[in-house]
């Protein structure tokens, strides 16, 4: 172990992260044909269509209008099908420059079996980078309708005391849209994980 290399230190993505990660979304067109992760669904993607949207708020309650959000999830059967043309499980969105709202159109993931025999409740990993964030923040979004199963989830069981668990549960909205606001500080601070 002592011969192991050290992980490279993280640095903030800064205020211009869109130039590198979503150039088309910030007006740099003609370099990359498309922004990676901008579209998660294909016509043939199996599963229940949902949308996820939210705003990231700083400690002053101001929306982060310069963030990039990535999500990573299993398919409808709870499998990570990374090479599938129908659904890669990964998406990337820019916060709106005025409102800070980001949005993904995706499918609801299935429950994910773990090698140790436990099963994780349907969840979506959410990873955020922005100016002022020195190292990307990992959280998970869970679904309100899976409430009964969540008591047995091996990751949710780590959230002790349980008073902050609700920060990981999206709120249902109209048209299969889930709202998942993220709070970086304050009484509503979202749970972030050391993955």
């Amino acid at each position: 172990m002592s011969d192991d290399l050290h992980e490279t230190a993280s640095q903030t993505a800064g205020p211009y992260v869109h130039i590198g990660c979503m150039p088309n979304a910030c007006g740099i067109t003609g370099v990359f044909a498309e922004d990676l992760g901008a579209q998660m669904l294909q016509a043939e993607t199996p599963g229940q269509r949902i949308a996820i949207e939210g705003v990231i708020f700083d400690g002053d309650g101001a929306p982060l209008t310069d963030a990039v959000v990535e999500i990573w999830q299993a398919d409808e059967q709870g499998r990570y099908t990374t090479r599938s043309a129908a659904f890669s499980g990964w998406g990337r969105a820019a916060a709106d420059a005025e409102t800070g709202r980001w949005r993904f159109e995706t499918i609801k993931p299935g429950a994910v079996p773990c090698p140790d025999g436990t099963v994780m409740v349907p969840h979506i990993t959410v990873w955020i980078i922005a100016r002022g964030i020195n190292i990307g923040l990992h959280t998970r979004m869970y679904f309100p309708e899976d409430y009964d199963m969540q008591a047995h989830d091996p990751v949710l069981a780590r959230v002790q005391p349980t008073g902050r668990l609700h920060t990981l549960i999206a709120e249902p909205g109209p048209d299969a849209t889930y709202n998942f606001n993220i709070y970086l500080q304050g009484p509503k601070e979202t749970v972030f994980f050391d993955v």
Binding site: A74, I133, R164
Partner: peptide
């Protein structure tokens, strides 16, 4: 910029699960 954008609670440690042990392929 980090003052208002840094979580105040400690990160919660978790086991490495298939979610973290697999990643997107390009």
């Amino acid at each position: 910029s980090s003052s208002m954008r840094s979580p105040e609670h400690a990160r919660i440690s978790m086991p490495a699960t298939p979610t973290e042990n697999i990643g997107p392929v390009f």
